[in-house]
Design a protein around this nucleic acid. Structure first.
Lengths: 225, 225
DNA sequence: TAGATTGTTAATCGATTAACAATC
DNA sequence: TAGATTGTTAATCGATTAACAATC
């Protein structure tokens, strides 16, 4: 009955990734040492939590007077997260969202490499397309195995989502960025990160509405009756 | 020092929205009554939490034997969240992501209405474009006021993000769906929902990598040393 | 009635924060 | 040295779950 928590310390890993990003910026700025205070401020959390996280991650590079070495911290975090090689990704479903992601410059292109798109619509298939060929879904499993792809973007229509997710898992994919409206649970074999844009939009409307109600009737504490 | 929690009971509101979506499906299936058990199963949480949430929201429609009326629950949740009229949205930044969202069919078009896009690139401006005109950023404030727009999608390049967010707030926007790589904090005046696709992708890589480490070295408990 | 389910109170759990001894 | 900052332990906080009396 207890809610599944597929990967332990999820928030800790998230924060380590953020620390890494912050430290990279500090390093680019020429800083060589930081205090837990600086990291906490940069991330909007308390210095105590930063120290606690580092301690839990078995990173004890701090000097009781001089803080932490930026470079050393980066290396230590990399060692835990796993230094990242170029990441190979396939995009499954080449409609509006899939195509936009295919051309999205926000993926630092030196880190993320989109190898191919897959789709079932014959008119979308284009194996010669550059830089990203679009192949029929039937070739997915072979392609994934041949190129040792571990991560996929799922951007198919709602009704196909569950089927295609099964195929991804069967093909050996380990992580999925899921843009379909269907939420899937992660499990130890296949990690799923759900990004439900329509749902976020819906939530946003409710927040705006809700905030206005609260302003209109500012008895604090519980929900408006 | 404490992390800002701009809107109280954030998770509760999220779950109420999910309950609403689940109940809508139940209703479409012809169900007239549900138990907390059914709702919990459908959402992957415990029945106790469902009852607690309803109780906290001051919704006490349950019958000790026959569960809750689907219709009544939907109405009660709508009353709290605020029944939704057609929502007017503008999209600021009409690059890859912005354009994709402009044409995204995932927004139930009868609920969400994208009124206009805004951009600074002269070659993108097209006030006659259908169904969504693309206007210069200089017209944003007037447009927002004239059409009483409360929600905006932010999809400008990273370096423009902070400036444009300020302009949105100044124009009277109350909620922002932020697709830029810069995370902004929500505040009581402007609620921000950050959707950082590149960051989610990065996290995904780390999870996959991390999960593999755990399989390779399955001493449970702490992080690999 | 007997059985099942709610609404609520108390217990548990986990995550964050505060505090502080150790020490650079 | 005196002052400042870490690493860690204890306290706090909030959210979830368990339990159960009320009762349909």
């Amino acid at each position: 009955m207890k809610r599944e928590d597929p990967v332990p310390q999820k928030e800790l890993i998230h924060r380590l990734v953020r620390y890494k990003n912050i430290l990279t910026k500090f390093k680019a700025l020429g800083l060589s040492r930081v205090f837990s205070d600086n990291l906490g401020d940069a991330d909007g959390i308390s210095a105590a939590l930063v120290r606690k996280d580092l301690s839990q991650a078995r990173i004890t590079l701090g000097n009781k007077r001089g803080g932490y070495p930026v470079e050393g911290l980066l290396n230590a975090i990399d060692a835990i997260l796993g230094a990242q090689l170029k990441q190979r990704v396939v995009i499954v479903g080449c409609g509006k969202i899939g195509t936009a992601l295919m051309n999205y410059s926000g993926f630092a292109t030196d880190q993320v490499q989109i190898l191919a798109g897959f789709d079932n619509h014959p008119e979308r298939i284009n194996p010669g397309a550059a830089p990203v060929p679009i192949l029929p879904l039937s070739q997915l499993a072979d392609f994934v195995k041949e190129h040792d792809v571990q991560v996929a973007v799922l951007a198919v229509p709602e009704e196909a989502a569950a089927d295609v997710l099964d195929r991804l898992a069967a093909a050996g994919i380990r992580g999925v960025l899921n843009f379909t409206p269907v939420s899937f649970k992660a499990n130890p074999i296949l990690f799923v990160q759900n990004i439900n844009i329509a749902f976020e939009m819906e939530n946003l409307f409710y927040y705006v509405r809700f905030a206005q109600q609260r302003v209109a009737e500012p008895k604090n504490g519980a929900l408006p009756s």
